[in-house]
Amino acid sequence: MREFRKYVLPGDVIVEDNPHIKPLANVIKIDNRIHATRVGIAEVTQNGVKVIPLSGIYIPRVGDLVIGKIIDYSSLAWVVDINSCFLGHLLAQDVFGKEFTPSRDDLTSKFNLGDVIACRIVNFDRTRDPLLTVADKDLGKINNGEIVKISPSKVPRLIGKRGSMIQMIEQLTKCKIIVGQNGVLVVSDSSKEAINMAVRAIMLIEEEAHTSNLTQRVKDMLGGSIA
């Protein structure tokens, strides 16, 4: 079978009359045709057909690292805005442990309204709101840094192949960057100038995410300004 990539818009027929090709992501099978459902780049491989979307909001996936803001809490859980159409829920048990009792433990002693946290999605199936956890290393409250929001569809480009792009920015600016799959980033641990440089590099990647040779241009931009 021929493997190829092409630009597609919603409704475009990617594959016709081939029952061996599986529809994977952002495609829909109608009769014996596979249509794209998003604006993006279609990839036809041995495994099947998928479309890498170029626009759209964040839809949670189990295992994703996301950065969210506490917007509400009850006696049992925090409600977290994770930059999606679904609100994240962080159970108090996850933070206080099994011995958690609502009458004794005060949720605001750990996270208060407006706090920004790095968390992971442990469960989500669209019928219920995503369940979050902070029980892992590098997760939890973020105390300082610059928050940057980019389009969630551009996050894979920012990370690059096996993290190449983000590692390069971190090395050149000496910043620490936490990338949430939901398009929220925190840049920290460096001087104000270096943080600004990193933010500008991130903005450049967002604007020119679909172009090639971007790594080199980002490198030139950062290399030219930081001695």
């Binding site: 919603p10 409704g11 829909i28 249509h35 604006v39 979307p53 626009s55 759209g56």
Partner: peptide, 11 residues
Amino acid sequence: LADAGINMRDM
């Protein structure tokens, strides 16, 4: 709607 990235069967 296509620009917003909402899943569509067709335009």
